[in-house]
Nucleic acid binder design. Structure first.
Lengths: 367, 367
DNA sequence: GTTAGCACTCTAAGCAATAGAGTGCCAACA
DNA sequence: TGTTGGCACTCTATTGCTTAGAGTGCTAAC
């Protein structure tokens, strides 16, 4: 156990910190013992949720030193801001900085067992008719396997490539615009027209739109639609005009980024949420979807697992919570999956789990 | 106040009880005083969340009788199972039966104020591109105005009338089926075909489907699709076959009944959910969407406000909770909106609020 | 039928005492 | 110089006890 931890101290290839954090990190010149004790302390605290004292560290993990020695080291670690005491007669608990260092440098990366991999693969291999279905299932799987909150976000539409536009007359004054992009996602909006439009004319209008726009990304369309349709003389001018007016609404960067969360129950049974104030804060965060969406979107570019600890993302409600996320790929576009839970979480386990789940999901969606 | 309550005692036109409950109800021959005191007690308890004692009833509400007299009446009401004592030295609180009688016979129906009506109308008058958007908004409005959990359920698809089927080739082996029904709702599924299908052939297949099926309700289609398409010789046989196989999935009775909930935070600050066990139970109910859907669906037929108190609906997690719901209309099809909260809720207020909201929603959706 | 009075019950809050956990520091030791 | 045992000190959590207060049920009188 101790040997494992020691051997793991040098690694830093499990990403998740940006430049700013690295710089901060470099200030910590920890001795071998300090690193070992910090790792042991975090491991133990994550399991028990109780402040860890010197005696436990010295006896339960055979470090070969006495509690008194451990006490000295703990004192040093506290001075460096990596651990803290809730009160004088209690043991130590990790600080945010402590967790950050642990995740970046001390963590021993875990490999998922074959049965676990199998379980994830099987759970995600469902018949889905819309991308939302499989994302919902993914949140559920993550929630169940991790006992945390499972989160997914639908892909960012901006880079999606338009496959086909379709216009359907619903009533005399109502036309439905169906926008299908290449990855099998479809969005619809309704536009209100003044008067009934002939079927043939509507068909022709759709044809014009397809001709001019299909194959372009929605982002491109959003930016250049006015130009592209300006000189167009075929099709129904009213519908074209409305389409242009509505495109902002439909194609806007943030639209369609839907958040799925699953496993709220897991969270409320966690010890840190016994405090009603804390719980309230967290549930508020959950219902204020946009800040969560921001959190998940922020690192969609990275193709690696991302760990956001506490208030690192500058989100009020995340105090005391961490997120482990990773982007997935669906054709040309990307979204994010992950889990959120108390800072006191099993980072190694969750990281490998989220990582694998995102990979399986990408695989399925790219088929 | 008291006069109001007395005058309201005779009314029973605010629906919500079925035959079984009426029968039970008839056993209660309450005296005038008993009715007044029960009403006063419930009103007071709803406001304070504290057991109500004889002194409060006798002094705060000028009934013209002494606490001792009230005590006798309370004792009678307890015998009849309408109120109970948490413990000997506490006041009384209403039982489920007590609430039921109150809602059915004692409640003074409230009329929403003009500003409140205006507020609801304005809040619901949003630009929506999908029915889900306005339902989400409706849950939010209900949650905000009632400080309870706002719930909406998308309309029951079965009675929706098919407007148009569209087939879009996404990749070589993937075809998207778009089903649009008359009220502006659209559903999509993906089917996997063996090989690329010519555009013209796909168009023709869609034409066949439209010709044979549009104008029928999805329920009819579900029941008779095999017959209707059996002898068909036009169109792509493989696509037609897959369409028939998938129709069950897509058109099935329960599919597409999506539940929106909003305002979990309102709930957790309620006094009854301070007990973590209770809270846990409720959140479990929230995540196990299907029993909630059942609860909301059950009385979609009634065109009147429905109050479900505690375990009346035989749902485990509803113990200690009540729901006030009403159906809304979107073209030919119907869904449900409402609020859920602790049994200790302001029934009169919530009933008028949900009622009005459902009406406004129906109006908007039927335009 | 109503009411005042009173004994009784139960809860919630405050208080003191106690046990236990863990620390920090000092002096001794290798 | 780093490590260790010992010990006084601090703080928390638990327990038991007491008390104040709220509310009832019952009885006897009106």
């Amino acid at each position: 156990m101790v040997a494992d931890l020691l051997s793991a101290c040098g690694r830093s290839d499990l990403g998740g910190f940006d430049g700013r954090v690295i710089k901060k990190m470099m200030q910590f010149d920890l001795t071998e013992r300090e690193r070992t004790i910090l790792a042991v302390l975090i491991d133990h605290y994550v399991r028990t949720a109780e402040p860890v004292g010197s005696r436990v560290i010295a006896t339960k993990y055979d470090l070969g030193v006495s509690p008194a020695t451990v006490r000295n080291t703990l004192s040093d670690l506290e001075e460096k801001g990596l651990i803290e005491q809730p009160h004088t007669s209690a043991g130590r608990i990790p600080t945010e900085t402590g967790y950050r260092l642990y995740v970046d440098r001390l963590l021993k990366s875990e490999r998922l067992s074959a049965p676990e991999r199998e379980k994830i693969k099987r759970a995600l291999s469902i018949d889905y008719s819309a991308i939302e279905d499989i994302l919902e299932q993914t949140s559920r799987v993550l929630a169940r396997l991790t006992s945390q909150l499972g989160v997914t976000i639908t892909p960012k539409f901006d880079q999606a490539v338009l496959n086909k536009v379709d216009l359907v007359q619903l009533t005399d004054t109502r036309v439905m615009v169906i926008v299908a992009v290449r990855s099998g996602i479809v969005r619809t909006i309704l536009i209100e027209v003044d008067s009934n439009i002939e079927v043939e004319r509507l068909r022709q209008t759709a044809e014009v739109l397809n001709e001019k726009l299909s194959g372009l990304s929605l982002g491109e369309i959003r930016r250049t639609i006015a130009e592209r349709l300006r000189a167009e003389e075929r099709g129904d001018p009213q519908v074209l005009k409305l389409f242009m007016e509505q495109h902002e609404h439909m194609l806007s960067e943030s639209s369609g980024e839907e958040l799925h969360t699953e496993g709220t129950i897991n969270i409320i049974s966690q010890k840190e949420f016994q405090n009603p104030e804390k719980l309230r804060e967290f549930l508020t965060l959950l219902e204020e979807r946009h800040s969560l969406i921001d959190l998940l979107k922020i690192k969609t570019f990275a193709n690696d697992i991302t760990v956001t600890i506490g208030t690192e993302a500058n989100i009020e409600g995340m105090k005391g919570c961490s997120a482990v996320t990773r982007s997935y790929q669906a054709g040309q576009i990307r979204g994010t999956v992950g889990v959120i839970g108390p800072t006191r979480m099993e980072y190694a386990k969750l990281m490998s789990l989220v990582d694998y789940t995102a990979k399986v999901l990408s695989e399925i969606l790219s088929r």
